[in-house]
Simulated scan of single mutants.
Amino acid sequence: MAKEQVVKLFRAAQMNPSLRDELNTAPDVDTFVKLAGERGYEFTTEEWQEVVRFSVEELKSHVSEIPGI
């Protein structure tokens, strides 16, 4: 279920530039997950990594730049 939340968040971010901009302000994955949770998208850092197949160290791009989402 949480993995579905990751996908829903990325789809919402693609449709909503304001949401995407807010998420792109996150300096790290933990902050990103916290911001997502505050907006109703509940998932852990590990679940996020499984869906997007990136490690924490690889998160140097913006949400809109993550391929496959």
Rank of each mutant, 00 (worst) to 15 (best):
M1V: 08
M1R: 11
A2F: 07
K3Y: 10
E4S: 04
Q5P: 04
Q5D: 14
Q5W: 06
V6A: 12
V6C: 14
V6L: 12
V6S: 13
V6T: 14
V7F: 09
K8V: 03
L9P: 01
L9F: 05
F10L: 13
R11L: 07
R11P: 00
A12V: 00
A12T: 07
A12H: 11
A12N: 12
A13N: 08
A13Y: 11
A13H: 03
Q14H: 10
M15T: 14
M15C: 11
S18T: 15
S18A: 13
S18C: 08
L19H: 06
R20L: 07
R20Q: 14
R20G: 04
R20C: 15
E22M: 06
E22Y: 11
E22P: 00
L23T: 13
L23F: 13
L23Y: 12
N24P: 01
N24C: 15
T25L: 15
T25N: 08
A26E: 06
A26V: 08
A26G: 05
P27T: 08
P27N: 08
D28N: 12
V29L: 15
D30T: 09
D30V: 05
D30Q: 13
T31G: 00
T31N: 11
F32S: 05
F32T: 06
V33M: 06
K34C: 06
K34I: 06
K34A: 12
K34N: 07
L35I: 10
L35D: 06
G37D: 03
E38A: 02
E38F: 01
R39S: 03
G40L: 01
G40D: 12
Y41H: 03
E42K: 13
E42Y: 09
F43D: 14
F43V: 12
T44H: 12
T44K: 10
T45S: 11
T45R: 11
T45G: 09
Q49T: 03
Q49M: 10
E50L: 04
V51Y: 01
V52N: 04
V52I: 12
V52M: 09
R53N: 14
F54W: 13
F54P: 03
V56R: 15
V56A: 13
V56G: 09
E57Y: 07
E58P: 00
E58C: 00
L59P: 01
L59Q: 11
L59N: 11
L59S: 08
K60V: 14
S61W: 06
H62W: 08
V63N: 04
V63T: 10
V63F: 11
S64Q: 10
E65P: 02
E65H: 05
P67T: 02
P67M: 05
P67G: 04
G68V: 12
G68A: 00
G68Q: 05
I69V: 14
